[in-house]
Amino acid sequence: MLLVVEAVGVAAFALAILAELVFRGSAAPGASIFLVLALGGAAWALVAAGRALSRGVRMARGFAMTWQIFQILVGLTGILGGGALWAVIGGWTVVLLAVAVVVLLMMPPVIDATTRTSVHED
Rank of each mutant, 00 (worst) to 15 (best):
G81V: 00
G75H: 05
G82I: 14
T77F: 09
G83K: 03
T66K: 06
R55P: 00
A84E: 07
M65N: 02
M59Y: 09
F70N: 11
T77D: 08
M65T: 15
I79T: 00
A87W: 03
I72S: 01
V57C: 01
Q68R: 11
G75P: 02
A87M: 13
R58A: 12
V74A: 08
R58G: 06
L80I: 07
A64L: 01
W67F: 13
G78W: 03
V74E: 00
T77Y: 10
F63C: 06
V74N: 09
V57R: 08
A87H: 14
Q68G: 00
G75R: 04
W67E: 04
M59L: 10
G83E: 07
F70W: 08
Q71V: 09
W86L: 12
R55C: 10
L85Y: 02
G62N: 10
G62K: 13
G82A: 14
G83I: 11
W86I: 15
F70Y: 10
F63T: 03
G62R: 12
L76M: 14
G83M: 01
I72F: 03
W67Q: 02
F70C: 14
F63G: 06
Q71A: 15
F70S: 12
I69D: 02
Q71R: 15
A64E: 03
G83T: 07
A87N: 07
G78R: 09
Q68S: 08
M59S: 12
M59K: 11
G56M: 03
M65F: 14
G78E: 08
Q68H: 02
A84K: 07
Q71L: 09
A84W: 12
L76C: 15
V74S: 13
V57L: 08
A64R: 04
G82P: 01
A87R: 15
L76Q: 03
T66N: 08
R61S: 14
A84Y: 07
R58P: 04
